[in-house]
Amino acid sequence: MEQILRIFYNNGSFFTFIGLQLLCLYLIVNFNSPQSAIAVETASIVTGSVKSGVGTVEGYLNLEEENEIQRREIADLRSRLPEAGYSTAVETDSIEDPTYTQRFIHLTANVVNRSPYSPNNTLVIDRGTSQGVAEGQGVIGSQGLIGIVDLATENFARVISILHRSAKISATLRNNAYGTLEWDGQDPRNMTMTDIADYLVVEKGDTVFTTGFSNVFPTGQVIGTVVSSETQAGTGRQNLKVALVNDPLHTNYALVVRDLFKEELAKLKPLN
């Protein structure tokens, strides 16, 4: 306490000066209009800048909440985009012809997802059980084959591509020789046709069709052309290298094939 008093005593002139200056400022601001106007203006500038600074800080404090609101808003807006919708229009084509009874129904579909390229390729189409898609149905493109439905959900179906090492497709040539098409997991442009008797003459460029035996694909769908043949020594068989007419990995438009006689044919399965 004594020290504080001593500070005041030793700096008496300073504190007198400060006190009187404050008094003077008070007098100046209250009794002189130009200075008073300047003081009011300055005060408003200072308080304004303080207020805007406080506003900035408050804005940062609210940032998390604001982000949450924005995210909800974005989610809401995205759900309104056309891409977010699911087309329920079902386009099914069939022919009314009294000569023939309808056997195959084609259902248009779009590829909505694909596995990364690997020896076992799969893809997902936007048609499911609600449109009649079921396991085991074939999927073809405008040209060539794409795959076989593996798993169908209500609105989507997973398709095993023909470029999958476990996919086996029965195929035939113009001379009615038939065999199995497989993929070795290497070149997505070629598949291998096995189980062709080695005495059959196969020319380069011969067309390979689906057989319809497995009632997965419609009969006579072009798959590709023969590139070369290779006799398998000691088996009496030859393997054909088949160039595909389409690129199953890069097709977006697909048709799901439904065989209306499938159940009937299943009763007549050939005996081994």
Binding site: G12, S13, F15, T16, F17, L20, Q21, L23, C24, L25, Y26, L27, I28, V29, N30, F31, N32, Q35
Partner: peptide, 26 residues
């Protein structure tokens, strides 16, 4: 401190005639 106070009063006296209360005093 008295020098400061005397000076203040002199300035204030001038201000009363100049009608600029506080400016000369300061």
């Amino acid at each position: 401190p008295l020098v400061v106070i005397f000076a203040f009063f002199f300035g204030l006296a001038i201000d009363l005639f100049y009608e600029t209360l506080g400016v000369h005093a300061a």
